[in-house]
Structures are given as C-alpha cells and as structure tokens.
Design a protein around this nucleic acid. Structure first.
Length: 267
DNA sequence: GCAACAGCCTACTGCGCGTT
DNA sequence: AACGCGCAGTAGGCTGTTGC
C-alpha cells in the first residue's frame, strides 16, 4: 500500500500564522486530533462547512479531501492551532500492545467535534510549553502523541472502531464520488485510491460511467460550475477559480474561453 | 483581469503479463 | 474470460512569466 505520510513531518504540528488568512486544500492521509488555540479554521469536505473556533477539539478522519481556510482573530494576533497526527504504524502497534479489537462501524464522516473536558485541556496546557520552544524533543513528542491517543480512547471509546480500522478504501460509486469531489485539485492517482481502484481500473470505470476521460470530464465539470457561478450568482472569476480546482487564473481564463468562446469576465 | 507562449509534466493509450 | 497491474511513448494540459 502507499503511505502518503512521510515520516519526516512532525507528529505534532503547531500552526502559527501571522495576521493572514491561508487557504488551500489537502488530502488527509492520517487521523488527526486537533485543537484550535486562536483564530478560526474553516474546513470544507465537499459537503459541509465546519468552523473550528478557539477552544474547539476536533477529530479528522483519514483518507478525506479537505479545503481549509485559516483566519486570524479579528482583533489582531496570530492564527494558532495544534494538530496531532496518528500514523498507521503507530496505531497498529498500539492496537496490538493493548489488544484493541474493532467491533462496530467506523465513523463515516470527515470531522467530529469532540466535547471539551478537563483532561483534554490539561493535556494541551502540558503540550504548549514544548511547542513554543524551537525544537521540541522528538522522543518526548512521541510520548505526547501516545498520551493524546489514550485520552481520545478514554473520552470517546467508540473511536477505536475508526482509529484501528486499517482497511483501504473500498470500491465505491464513482459517479456520486466524482460529482461530490470534482472541485478538489488532486491527481488521478488520489481519486483512484479514494474510490478503491487502481489507476487503470479507475480510468476504465470512469470511461464506462462518464463516456469520456477523467481529465476532460473534470475540466468540463469545473468550467460548467464556473459558468453557473459567474452567470447566475454574479461571482467574480478571480474569487472562484481556486475553489473549483484551478491553480492559475490565466489558465482558468484560457480554458473557459476555449469552452464557451468568451472570457469569464464577459459572460 | 486577460492573453500569449515556452517548457515541463501529467494523463492517455495500447500492450503484455499475471491473477481470479 | 474478466479483471488488475505496470510500463513506455506520446499528446496535450498546466504552470509560470511577461506584457497589456
């Protein structure tokens, strides 16, 4: 299997952005336990929009596509959040050591809001001093990740069915999945993996379902959406091209004109 | 905000081979 | 037979830059 999580990234990430909103999208390959320290994290999974406010604890499920926007506090200061990621290796070892067995369905959503409690708060308070030093000791951080996992299992025991579910994505309905996620700008490899297929099978199934190639369909679908947003909703090209999975405004404009014969600003 | 363009890189296609 | 995987060559899509 492909592990999309290089081990050189820190297990505990302290995000700190100075007075500026950062937007982007990402594939979440590992389960994440997060805490919002300051500012707001807006997250969209293609179906729902979630707002992580200061003091919120969240659990994010692995193998999901997310768009996020990091908004610093209105009254000034930095956006700050803590993300703790649980690698599959670490979870597998933990489940073996502690004899955890999956006995129910895994959490099917993307983001789970966790009730705040004194244990979580104490844990974050014990963690912050390490994170604010320049280079936290990696071994110590490993222990903190384990501590976070134990707390999570203690307060939300049902999460064991998700945390210790090591199965790969199963073959799912391609048409529904693509219509839900076409605006994520990720490679075909990723789409194939998330729909439980090899790249070759993904392309074959795609051709059967949509009678065109994935890249052509994706571009047309995104441009149709752009046309709708510009014409019906009065959206500006510069504000929507990224939301629709284009990385470059000039290319968006070029592709739009090729399909509709007019530049997006003249619709 | 849009157009043009060069160069890079990704996706498509076709094929052979292995597995179910 | 149907399905799944991997490879190589190639076309064309995308990015980054520049200029208006």
């Amino acid at each position: 299997m492909t592990t999309d999580a290089p081990n050189d990234r820190p297990r505990i990430l302290y995000s700190c952005y100075h007075s500026r909103s950062r937007e982007g999208e990402q594939f979440v390959p590992e389960h994440i336990f997060s805490y919002q320290v300051a500012g707001t994290m807006m997250v969209n999974d293609g179906e729902q929009e979630f707002a992580n406010q200061p003091g919120d604890f969240r659990f994010m499920r692995r193998n999901r596509l997310l768009k996020f926007s990091k908004v610093p506090p209105e009254n000034g200061g930095d956006f700050k959040s803590i993300s703790i990621r649980f690698s599959q290796d670490m979870l597998r070892n933990f489940s073996l050591t502690h004899a955890y067995k999956v006995d129910g369905p895994a959490f099917d959503g993307t983001i789970l809001k966790l009730e705040s409690n004194p244990h979580f708060k104490a844990f974050i308070n014990s963690l912050l001093p390490y994170l604010e030093t320049e280079a936290p000791d990696p071994e110590l951080m490993e222990h903190k990740v384990t501590e976070a996992l134990m707390l999570l299992l203690k307060t939300n025991p049902e999460l064991k069915n998700t945390l210790f579910d090591f199965s790969e994505p199963g073959k799912i309905d391609l048409e529904a999945f693509m219509n839900r996620n076409f605006h994520f700008n990720v490679g075909l490899n990723r789409f194939a993996y998330l729909t439980g297929r090899s790249l070759a099978t993904f392309k074959r199934d795609f051709e059967k379902a949509f009678h065109t190639s994935p890249s052509k369909w994706l571009q047309q679908r995104r441009l149709r959406e752009a046309h709708y947003l510009i014409k019906e909703k009065g959206a500006a090209p510069s504000t929507i091209y990224m939301d629709l999975g284009f990385e470059d405004l000039s290319h968006f404009s070029f592709a739009f004109k090729k399909m509709y014969g007019v530049a997006p600003s003249r619709v």
